Amino acid sequence: MRLTARARLTLLLTTLVLAAGGALTALTYLLMRQRLRHGTFFTELDPAGSPSAGATQPAQSLHDLADRMVADTLSALLTQAGLALIAVTGLTAALGWLMAGRVLRPIRAISATAHRLSAENLTERIPVTAPADELSTLAATVNDMLDRIQHGVAERDRILDSQRLFTANAAHELRTPLTTARTAIDVTLDGNPNRAELLTMAGDVRNAVQHVQRVLNGLLLLARSQAGIGAREPDDLAGIAAAALDAARQRTHDLAVHTDLRPAPVSGEPVLLERMIGNLVDNAIRYNRPDGHLTVSTGTAGGRAVLRIFNTGREIPPDEAQTLLEPFVYGQGARVRTEGLGLGLSIVRAVALAHGGQLALTALPDGGLDITVELPQHPVATADRPT
């Protein structure tokens, strides 16, 4: 038969009291017998110490009587002590049962709470009672564990929702050009198309295929960025930014471009760093306004290499700015959809995180974005590109 923890505690306490009471009874019995056997009364009745031979017989009778009295006393002592020990043991068992139940009550509360918890209900917590003992510490530890589990479940749900949204958006981005190509083919081939109509259809199909290819390339780069980086090489954000601005010079003829490119040495994968800064420059130009401004600066601060890009543009609600970091998000009312894929800032964030950095994005009150990327600074500045 398997005993419960309460029964085991009660049995342990009862056994300890029984053993202690038995030892105390035995010790009392031995000490009492020793005292009675060698007390003053037996010494006075000792025949060897009698003053005359005539007194030997009465003394012997008294000695026998004393022996019987001692034996009766010790027997009564054992009987009464045994009864008292039985009573104390029974009382101890009853009190031990009650005390064990009280001591184990917090554990039962923990068990009951654990049974009520599920993936859909992680809000309940175990009450932590005073004083601060081992059981209250256990309750607090379990509550901390439940907090971590709840946070993990919430984070898992958030990731799953984000993945589902990403999958749906990616499917939409790929399905739209394919649908366009299919429609162009069906409409053109529904009859006897001439050469001009076939060329128009071919152009539509080519544009759709190019769009699909750009989406797939963006997805592959995003996945590569999120998977981490391989071999690191020393580089300079200033040189990469200068090269990105030079490549986009034809698209900035109607913008006022300001640069402050100071050395910002980093260590990372050059291809990913180039794409990160290229995407930032591309977004700053693509979503700018005519006669707007674009400012790009690099430098170091607090042992970090810093890249900052801010541009004019449409007004973006502050609560919507962070959503622009999600894949395939273009903004509602703040940014019109253009030929962009909606992956630019997602790739930027993934590259920054892969290099141990961070990205901060702020919507400017008059429109546009202020984006800052901070990466761990490389101790030696080795920039191969002109600044």
Score class of each variant (00 low, 15 high):
9 L>P: 01
11 L>S: 05
15 T>I: 08
18 L>W: 11
21 G>T: 14
22 G>H: 11
31 L>Y: 08
33 R>A: 12
34 Q>F: 14
50 S>L: 14
51 P>I: 01
57 Q>L: 14
60 Q>L: 15
68 R>I: 02
71 A>E: 09
80 Q>L: 11
89 T>C: 09
90 G>S: 06
97 W>Y: 09
99 M>V: 14
104 L>H: 00
118 S>A: 12
129 T>S: 02
130 A>T: 05
130 A>M: 02
131 P>N: 01
132 A>S: 11
137 T>F: 10
138 L>N: 09
145 M>T: 13
147 D>F: 00
152 G>Q: 11
167 T>L: 05
168 A>N: 13
174 L>H: 08
184 A>H: 02
202 A>E: 05
207 N>Y: 01
207 N>T: 14
208 A>G: 06
212 V>L: 11
213 Q>I: 10
221 L>M: 11
228 G>T: 08
235 D>A: 15
236 D>G: 07
240 I>D: 02
248 A>H: 11
249 R>C: 00
249 R>N: 03
255 L>W: 02
256 A>N: 11
264 A>I: 08
282 D>A: 09
286 R>D: 10
287 Y>T: 06
289 R>F: 01
289 R>Q: 08
291 D>K: 05
299 G>C: 06
301 A>S: 12
303 G>I: 12
304 R>Y: 09
312 T>I: 01
313 G>L: 04
320 E>Y: 05
324 L>R: 01
326 E>N: 12
334 A>G: 15
353 L>A: 05
354 A>P: 05
358 Q>R: 09
358 Q>K: 03
361 L>F: 08
364 L>Y: 00
365 P>L: 01
365 P>Y: 00
366 D>I: 01
370 D>I: 06
374 E>R: 15
374 E>H: 15
377 Q>R: 15
384 D>L: 13
